[in-house]
């Protein structure tokens, strides 16, 4: 039982990083109704620039963090202009395919910057783990969790308390109507994309600083984790993204402990498989789509 609870604690900590990645997917999906596969690779490119500064110039942790977030954000803006703004609404598949092409481009760029397979990444903290009774908490995990909670609060505040958030939600629900209200929907999509890329950059930095290494495969990894967490929770749902991330974290940690490393990813895919069969819309997505359907019947 102690192991089980310890795994749950670790799972929630790791899952908070997944939740941040899933928020990126879900906000973009909500606003654009399109998937951005290049999300993970954009973060990876940011992390590679951060790693370069760390290796070449012995940059401090904070500098690496800033560089990672800025480059991830700029790359996100580049992806938006190229794959989403340039390809109009209604061509959802074309955007997704072109974001896949940009993925390849970003991975090549990362390999040109740093051609080896693995590079060191600065450690988040060097504090000792915290002991609470029989359980312990890695200080990196705790930092990641706290930052994730703060970011979720920030995102929620932005979406529900600001003018920009009102526009983002209006565009998510009905871009045509949003335009009739005088909302510049292209600008809203662009800045939502930028915001989400910055969140991704922070998430990527936290995860990599916990692992203390970065590889070009991080892009693939981040896209996978974010997508799975979003699909578990329900596409386009903010609470869904958070819950999906946490569940994914817990399931992975438990299966790693009880079944071994080989089963870690397998059990995550199996869980997704089950959710998609039982509740195809995801955990929150199902309730959401039901409510949405009821709402849309009358519109």
């Amino acid at each position: 039982m102690t192991d089980f609870i310890q795994n749950c604690i670790d799972g929630v900590m790791i899952g908070s990083g997944y939740a941040l990645l899933a928020i990126g997917f879900t906000v973009v999906f909500g606003v654009l109704r399109r998937l951005n596969l290049a999300y993970g690779p954009s973060i990876m490119l940011g992390a590679f620039v951060g790693a370069l500064l760390y290796i070449q110039f012995q940059a401090q942790l904070f500098t690496v963090a800033i560089a990672t977030v800025i480059v991830a954000t700029l790359t996100g803006m580049y992806v938006e202009r190229l794959c989403f703004w340039a390809i109009r609404r209604g061509a959802a598949l074309a955007s997704m395919v072109s974001s896949f092409a940009i993925w390849m481009q970003l991975e090549e760029m990362a390999v040109i910057i740093l051609p080896e397979r693995t590079y060191p990444f600065p450690a988040l903290t060097d504090l000792a783990p915290i002991h609470i009774g029989p359980y312990f908490l890695r200080s990196e995990h705790l930092t990641m969790f706290v930052v994730a909670v703060l970011l979720v609060i920030v995102v929620h505040t932005v979406l529900y308390r600001t003018r920009f958030g009102l526009a983002v939600r209006a565009v998510s629900e009905n871009p045509d109507a949003a335009r009739y209200m005088g909302i510049n929907i292209d600008a809203v999509m662009f800045w939502a994309f930028a915001m989400v890329s910055a969140i991704g950059g922070i998430a990527g930095f936290l995860i990599l600083a916990t692992d203390q290494q970065v590889t070009p495969y991080f892009g693939l990894w981040a896209t996978f984790k974010g997508l799975i967490a979003m699909m578990l929770g329900g596409m386009g749902s903010l609470p869904g993204a958070i819950l999906g991330g946490l569940i994914l974290g817990i399931v992975e940690t438990q299966s790693l402990w009880y079944l071994g490393n080989d089963y870690r990813d397998l059990s995550a895919y199996f869980l997704l498989f089950l959710v998609l069969i039982i509740r195809p819309g995801g955990i929150f997505g199902h309730a959401l789509s039901e409510r949405e359907r009821a709402a849309l019947r009358r519109v």
Partner: peptide, 23 residues
């Protein structure tokens, strides 16, 4: 077809109408 924002409250819908003045 009205095109109200179905998942936003009535009050929020009204506020989007004043979007250019919000804030």
């Amino acid at each position: 077809n009205r095109l109200v924002f179905p998942m936003m409250t009535v009050r929020e819908n009204l506020e989007t109408g004043a979007y250019l003045r919000v804030g």
